[in-house]
Structures are given as C-alpha cells and as structure tokens.
C-alpha cells in the first residue's frame, strides 16, 4: 500500500492544477452550461454528470498509464506517435460532439425540442446528461500538462489500484475549482444567451477540429 503522503500529493497536485483544468475545460463547459435552464439545480446536475464522466476518463487513463509504466518510463511513451494520434482523435470527437450539441440546442428557447438527442432543454434529465457525459469523458481524456504530471506519478506506483486511487484524489482536487461554474445558473436564459452559446460552440468546435486534423497530420498547430 502506498503511503498516505502520496495521496496527499495527489490531492495537492489536483488543487494546484485546478486553474489549468478549468482553463482547459472552460471552452467546452461554459457554452454548454449556458444552453441549460437557469438555476442552481440544473447546473449542479449537469456539472455532476460532466465531472463523473471526466472521472471515468481519468480512471481509464490511470489504468493505461499504469500498464505503460509497468513496461517502461512514462515520458518516452507519451512522446510516441499514439499520443498525437489519440489527442487528434479526441479533439475531432470533441468538435463533433460540440457541433451536434450546438445543433441540438436550437430549440432551447421555448420551442419544441423533440428532435434533439444529446441536449433537450426542459425535458428529461437523461437526455441532458448524455451531452454532459460525452463532453466530460472527452475532456477527461485530454492530455493537459498537470494531467500528464499526474500520469507520470501514477505510472510509478506499485499497483493499478494505487494508480486509480491517485487519479481519483487528483480528480477531487481539480474538481473543487469547478464549483464556481454553478454561478452560471444565475444568468438569465433567453434567446440571446442561448444563441451566443450555440455560436460560440460552433467556433470552438471548428478550432478543435482544425487542431485535431493538424495533430493527425502530425503538423504543428501554429503556422509560426
């Protein structure tokens, strides 16, 4: 069993990495939250679904890195081609979900939303949760720097259970930073807010799409 100090380290790493995490998830989370109904409870439900899926993404990653770590050092593995391929694929999937989300939220403003599959404003919770889960899982698989740092540490642990526990505590630490997003529930929802959120989703989706394609093509994301 790993010493408690190691898990304190996981929690501290999560807390310290929180700003980077909300920065990474913000482009996905903020516009999608703005298409929800106003109020604390709908936002809490959405955020819970998003974070749960994100935790699932973390745990999947924890298993993967521990397996990799058992074979070799984490860092060379991350610099191999599959990383670019994985991130490219995740970015493209994220873009597709966001585009579908923006399309599905077209009826968010007081009209029928029977046609939407992922997002269904004002309808059953399960429909709303699907979009949150898809986005949470995909952002949970993103290899942001603190996430990679946690991965390197987890790969050094003696067992997969410890690696899972390490990532769970890391997740708890980062999740504290997501609480302020509940404040978006206080914003009024009207056609303007939902339309802005949908348009922003499309722009962000296009950005992720370009980024994903560039990664798959092994091109640098910047033209400089």
């Amino acid at each position: 069993m790993a010493p408690p100090v190691l898990f304190s380290e996981a929690l501290a790493l999560g807390l310290a990495s929180g700003p980077a995490c909300i920065a990474a998830c913000g482009p996905v989370l903020v516009p999608s939250l703005l298409t929800q109904q106003a109020g604390f409870r709908p936002h809490a439900r959405y955020l819970a679904a998003f974070l749960s899926a994100r935790l699932l993404g973390y745990l999947l990653f924890a298993i993967a890195v521990w397996e990799l770590g058992a074979l070799a050092s984490m860092l060379p593995a991350l610099h191999m081609l599959p990383r670019a391929f994985l991130m490219g694929a995740v970015n493209i999937l994220l873009a597709c979900v966001l585009l579908w989300y923006a399309y599905s939220a077209r009826h968010a403003c007081g009209q029928s939303c029977s046609g939407s599959k992922l997002v269904n404003i004002g309808a059953t919770t399960s429909h709303r949760a699907a979009g949150a889960v898809a986005l949470g899982l995909l952002t949970g698989l993103s290899l942001c720097p603190p996430f990679v740092a946690a991965g390197v540490r987890a790969a050094q642990l003696p067992g997969v259970v410890q690696a899972l526990l390490f990532f769970t505590l890391f997740f708890v630490g980062t999740s504290v930073w997501f609480v302020p997003f509940l404040g978006l529930g206080c914003l009024v929802r009207n056609q303007a807010v939902v339309t802005v959120a949908r348009m922003a989703m499309v722009l962000i989706a296009l950005y992720y799409l370009a980024l994903g394609i560039a990664m798959l093509m092994e091109k640098k994301a910047y033209g400089y």
Binding site: P31, A197, A200, Y207
Partner: peptide, 16 residues
C-alpha cells in the same frame, strides 16, 4: 449575437 459569441469563444480559447 455573433460578436458576443466570438468574444466568448476567443476569451475561453485564449485562456485554455
């Protein structure tokens, strides 16, 4: 609403 959408998207992406 386009300018507001561009503002929201670009502010979030700049941070990310």
């Amino acid at each position: 609403y386009g300018p507001w959408a561009v503002l929201l998207a670009m502010a979030l992406l700049s941070l990310a």
